[in-house]
Computed example of a mutant assay.
Amino acid sequence: MYNAEQSSLSRSEIRKNIRNARRNLSNLEQEQAAKKININFFQHKKLPNNARIGLYLSNDGELDTSILIQSLNKKRHQVFLPVIHPFNGTTLLFQRYENNSPMTQNRYAILEPQLNCSHICPLYELDYLLMPLVAFDKEGNRLGMGGGYYDKTLARYYREQMKKPELIGLAHDCQQVEKLPIQAWDVPLQQIITPSKFYQW
């Protein structure tokens, strides 16, 4: 675990260090992590029938979600992936994803479903939202990529204290730091799952 507090690193420095750490994971380590996160998720979460789950496709060394997505599809749950909002460009929509869904690259060269408004699920109708992150600490504070997409998308969720979806962060074990420098708008996650652990605050 990297002690960010002792070394007085800024958010951008932590982001750079942790992104490098996860990029340096070998293909075998990534494959093992993907298998373990799949097991760990289902061990700790008893999903209702036909659950609606917001997920993401891994990028930049993020925890590989492909096995988890396959498992959810086999169990007949519905998977929704983030799509950058076509009008405001600062928030996310969540669109149904299946094996044959047409995909396109967004501005960050990340694959997302080709926009189809009839396949969009409102945030409050998702049962779970599994979120990527760059780093997290012992108190559940989350550091993202810096674009603020999830923060802006979830602003109303936090403001109105919505009960759905259940928010869960996904990360490699190497992405944990001792203490993150937080901003006034940061809201800690109540749950984070890594390949080896389940954190709940």
Rank of each mutant, 00 (worst) to 15 (best):
K75M: 07
A155K: 07
L92M: 15
P132H: 10
H44I: 02
R22Y: 02
P102L: 03
R15N: 04
L115H: 06
P181E: 07
M103D: 03
R156Y: 09
P195Q: 03
K152E: 13
P48H: 00
G89E: 09
E178H: 09
L93V: 05
L170K: 04
T104S: 00
K197I: 01
R142K: 08
I110R: 01
E29Y: 00
A4P: 12
G54V: 13
C121K: 04
P195F: 03
N50P: 00
Q30T: 04
P122I: 04
P82T: 11
S196C: 09
F94G: 10
D127S: 00
D186E: 10
N141D: 05
A155N: 12
I182Y: 09
S101F: 04
D137S: 05
F136Y: 13
Q114D: 05
E5H: 04
D186A: 06
P113D: 04
Q78K: 06
S196M: 10
K152C: 06
N59M: 08
P132K: 09
I18W: 05
P48I: 00
C117Q: 12
A109G: 09
S7H: 13
R52L: 01
L170F: 15
A171V: 04
S26E: 03
L9C: 12
D64G: 10
A21Q: 12
F87C: 10
R11F: 13
R96W: 14
I37Q: 07
Y149R: 09
D127E: 12
R159N: 07
W185E: 08
L63G: 02
G169W: 06
I14V: 11
G54W: 01
F94N: 14
N3T: 12
I69L: 07
K16G: 00
I192M: 12
R96H: 15
R23G: 10
F42Q: 04
Y108A: 05
P181V: 02
K45F: 15
R15A: 08
A171H: 04
Q32W: 00
R76Q: 06
A109Q: 15
D186I: 01
Y108E: 01
T91W: 01
E160T: 10
L123H: 11
I37F: 13
L57Q: 11
T65R: 07
L72G: 12
K164H: 14
I110A: 07
R76T: 02
N38D: 08
I168F: 12
H172D: 10
E31F: 00
N3I: 07
F42I: 02
Q176H: 08
S101H: 03
G146H: 05
S58K: 15
L123S: 11
C174W: 02
L92H: 08
F94T: 14
Q95K: 14
L9E: 07
R23A: 13
V187E: 04
L180D: 10
S8P: 01
I84K: 11
Y108R: 06
M145E: 12
N24G: 08
G54L: 11
N116R: 14
Q95E: 03
Y157I: 02
I110S: 11
L93F: 12
R15F: 05
G148R: 06
P188A: 01
L55P: 15
Q70I: 01
Y2M: 14
Y150N: 10
A171Y: 06
D60K: 15
L130R: 11
I67C: 09
P165D: 07
I193A: 00
S196G: 05
L126G: 00
Q114Y: 03
W201I: 00
L63C: 01
F136W: 11
I110W: 02
